[in-house]
Structure formats: structure tokens, C-alpha cells
Amino acid sequence: MLTSKRLSAIADYVLEGSRLADIGSDHALLPVELVGRGTCPSAIAGEVNDGPLEAARRGIAAAGLASSIEARKGDGLEVLQPGEADTVTIAGMGGALIVSILEAGRLGGKLDGVRQLVLQPNVGEELVRAWLLEHGWHLAEESILEEDGKIYEVLHALSSAEARERSEELYGGEPLLPGLTSEEDRRLKLRMGPYLTRRPSEAFARKWSSELRKLRGIALQLERSDTEEAAARKRELAQVIDRIEEVLACTRTDMSSLS
């Protein structure tokens, strides 16, 4: 069984019967768990570096699953043939890197036949949400958790004929805060999560309290510059800080009502 809360959260999103490709699989813990528990009949563990690739192969062999899981060396989705997997998991990377892997896969036809993505960016979650929205994937669910002093977000996206319509409903509708334009509201939901902003969560509050401290530090540094560019950036940051503070205030109110 998986001992990592982060990997367990990813595994729980994978649908029964999925043909899995785990990109950046490291020790192949996720494929071994999902094939071992019977969720996935088969899996591919992709790794670009020899050390993790060999670790994956050892883990697969130790679990007795070499007939069902194949470890392959390759960069991102290059380890796949089009139509070979219907589910892709990518975890433990920055959001920009995850987006670059998905985009290269999209352009190369490697996402053909893929109907499910489970993604866990370490940073830059808004970049991943924006890519999913732009390319016709519906963010079906997302979660946030804390493990070993770090906070992680896990995104579960689906591709379907109704994906664009459902995405418009998700990012449209009632704004998070009064007075926001539709574009401002969409940007805020992409940044903070359209589901996470609606749910009271200690992990969410801790993450964005930390982000606020970082943003205020940047704003303080900008005070030392008298350029027009610095002034514009400071105004932009002030607005972002205000919006995050307002969302956090609403979240804390919701959490208080539940206690």
C-alpha cells in the first residue's frame, strides 16, 4: 500500500479499468499500486533518467508485476504510442514542465485516446489549469493536502464531448467575489482553484497565507524602485493581494461556520 498521502490522492482519482501511463514514475510506486490493487489492468512507467528507470524496473519486478507494467526510457510522453494509454499521470514537477510535456504530447499525437489526466504540479498550478481549459479538458475535481510540511494540489481532468461546455460552467457562473468582471473572476479561479476556493480547508488557508507573505515581500522590494515599471507592477501586486485576502476571509468564515 502507498504510504504517501500525495500519491494516494493521485491514485484515488484514477478510474477503474484505466490503461495507465505514469510519466516521471521514479520508483514506479503509483503503477505498482494501481495494477496491484486491480484498478489498472496494465501500466507504463516512463522515466528519462537511467537511475530512476532502473529503480522502477526493480520495484516492478519485486512486486511480481513485470507482465503487466513496463518501464520505458524517454522524455515525457515520448514513451507512448498514440492510443496506447487512456490515462496519464504526471506528479512531482513544476507546472510549467507539466504543461510543456502535455503540449509536446498533444502536438505529437501522444494524447490521442487519452481521456483522463491526473496531475500534481509542485508549483504553477494555474499554468496547468489554463492549459487544460485552453485545450478542451474539463477539470472534474481537484484537492489540496499537506504532507511532511509541504502543500500539494492534485488536479483530475477529463476529455469528453461536453468538456468545453462544462469548463465554461466551472469558470463562469457566480463570481468568487462581488464586483469582479468575468475575466477577473476566471483569472482568480485559475490561480486559486475553482473547487478549492469554494471549500473550507486548513491546507488551502495555509498555502495562500504563505503566498501572501511572499507577495508582500515582493511589493516591499518594489518600494525601493521609482521606475514606472515598478510602480505598475506594485499596483498589479496590490490588486492580487487584495483579491487573495478577500478569498481567504470568505474561506475562514466558511470554516468557522463548520466548527
Rank of each mutant, 00 (worst) to 15 (best):
I151Y: 04
R199L: 14
S182V: 13
K214W: 14
E211M: 14
A249N: 05
T39D: 08
R213H: 09
I60N: 04
P178Y: 07
E228Y: 11
I144K: 01
E84K: 01
Q120T: 07
A11F: 10
I241H: 12
G124W: 10
S100C: 03
H138I: 02
G92T: 03
V35R: 04
D112Q: 15
I101S: 04
E33W: 12
E165G: 04
R19W: 11
P41D: 09
K214V: 14
H138P: 02
A9R: 12
R198M: 06
K150N: 08
L139K: 04
S259D: 11
R37S: 12
H27P: 06
T253Q: 12
E33R: 12
T39A: 11
A61V: 01
P121S: 12
A28F: 03
V48N: 03
L222W: 09
Q120W: 07
I241Y: 12
Q120A: 11
A43K: 02
V99H: 00
R187I: 00
R235K: 12
C40K: 06
C40Q: 07
P31C: 05
E141D: 14
C250S: 12
E168M: 07
R186E: 12
Y171D: 00
S25C: 13
D148Y: 07
M1S: 14
D148V: 00
L180Y: 09
L133A: 14
E146D: 00
R72N: 00
L111R: 08
H138A: 07
G113R: 12
D185G: 14
V154K: 03
A11G: 08
S18D: 02
R213A: 11
L158R: 14
E153G: 05
H156N: 01
